[in-house]
C-alpha cells in the first residue's frame, strides 16, 4: 500500500535554516544540507525547502544550495519560495530539485500553473496554499501570509488542480506555530475534493496530531518544521507510533 509521508520542512534564509513562529520571529536552526542528510537518515520520506529570502540577488545562492542538497540526499525534495517564472523552475529542476512549489505567482497568474505542468509535468508542480479562517471561511493569503485575497481555499484548490497542479501543500495560518494540531476540517475538505495528494502543514505539536491529520484530515502527507528541528519529536518514534496505530508508514 502507498504510505503516508512525513515531510520535514526547512525554511531557508541566506543559505541557513530558520523557522518562524506565525511567519515571524525567525530563529536560526542550522545548516540545510547537514539537516537534510540527518532527516533522510532518520526516515523522512521527503523534504521541502522554502526560501524565505527569495530575492533576485539571492537566487544564485539558492541554485547552488539545491545542487549541494541533490548531491547529498537520496530522497525526493521540493523547493519553493519566490518562484515566479518558467525560467526559475527550469533552473531549480536542472539543479536537482524533484518538485517546485509555487504560491503567490500562481494567484497573480493562474495560467502559470498550466504552463508549468505542460512543460515539466504535473508531478513536479506543487501548489502551496496559505489559508486563514476568518469570517466563517478559509481565505487564501499571499506573500508569505501578509496579503489577504478574496479567494476561498476550497475553490482555489479545485481551480489549481484543473490547471495542472500535481500536489497541494496546505498551510493553515491559524494553526502554524501553535503546536495545537493541524487544521483538520479544511484539510479533509480539500483532500476529498481534489484527486491529487494533499500535504497538511501548520500546527504539529505532538505525535497524536499526525495520526489525527492522516485519519480524520485525510491528508496524504504531513509537514512540520520546528518540532523536528528542535528534536521535540523524533521522526523514527513518530513513524513507529503511526505504524502501531495501523497507518501505512514506511519504516
Amino acid at each position: 500500500m502507498l504510505a503516508k509521508r512525513i515531510i520535514p520542512c526547512l525554511d531557508i534564509k541566506d543559505g541557513r535554516t530558520v523557522k518562524g513562529v506565525n511567519f515571524e520571529n525567525i530563529r536560526d536552526a542550522g545548516d540545510p544540507v547537514e539537516l537534510a542528510i540527518a532527516y533522510a537518515q532518520q526516515g523522512a520520506d521527503e523534504l521541502v525547502f522554502l526560501d524565505i529570502t527569495a530575492t533576485n540577488e539571492k537566487r544564485k545562492t539558492l541554485i547552488e544550495l539545491v545542487t549541494r542538497i541533490a548531491k547529498h540526499i537520496n530522497i525526493p525534495f521540493t523547493v519553493g519560495g519566490g518562484i515566479s517564472s518558467i525560467e526559475d523552475v527550469s533552473l531549480l529542476l536542472n539543479a536537482g530539485a524533484d518538485k517546485i512549489s509555487i504560491n503567490s505567482a500562481a494567484i497573480k497568474d493562474p495560467q502559470l500553473i498550466k504552463k508549468l505542468s505542460d512543460q515539466f509535468g504535473s508531478q513536479c508542480v506543487v501548489l502551496a496554499i496559505d489559508t486563514k479562517f476568518e469570517n466563517n471561511d478559509w481565505f487564501v493569503y499571499l506573500n508569505g501570509g501578509r496579503i489577504k485575497t478574496e479567494l476561498k481555499a476550497l475553490d482555489w484548490a479545485k481551480q489549481i488542480v484543473e490547471l495542472g497542479a500535481g500536489e497541494i501543500l496546505l498551510t493553515s495560518m491559524n494553526n502554524d506555530g501553535t503546536k495545537k494540531g493541524f487544521a483538520i476540517d479544511i484539510t479533509k475538505q480539500i483532500s476529498e475534493a481534489v484527486n491529487v495528494p494533499v500535504i497538511a502543514s501548520g500546527g504539529a505539536g505532538t505525535i497524536e496530531h499526525f495520526k489525527d491529520v492522516f485519519i480524520n484530515g485525510k491528508a496524504d502527507a504531513a509537514l512540520a518544521a520546528s518540532i523536528f528541528h528542535f528534536k521535540e519529536i523524533e521522526i523514527i518514534e513518530l513513524k513507529k507510533y503511526l505504524k502501531n496505530n495501523h497507518i501505512e508508514i514506511r519504516i
Binding site: M1, A3, R5, D45, P76, Q123, G166, P197, D220
Partner: peptide, 28 residues
Amino acid sequence: KVPQMGWNTITDLKTNLFRGIKENEYQY
C-alpha cells in the same frame, strides 16, 4: 489519487537486481 505519489512496497522480487532487498521494501 492520480498520480500515485510517494512510497509503496514491492513484492515477488526476482533476479539479482533485487539482491539484498527484502520483500515489501518501500520504493519511491
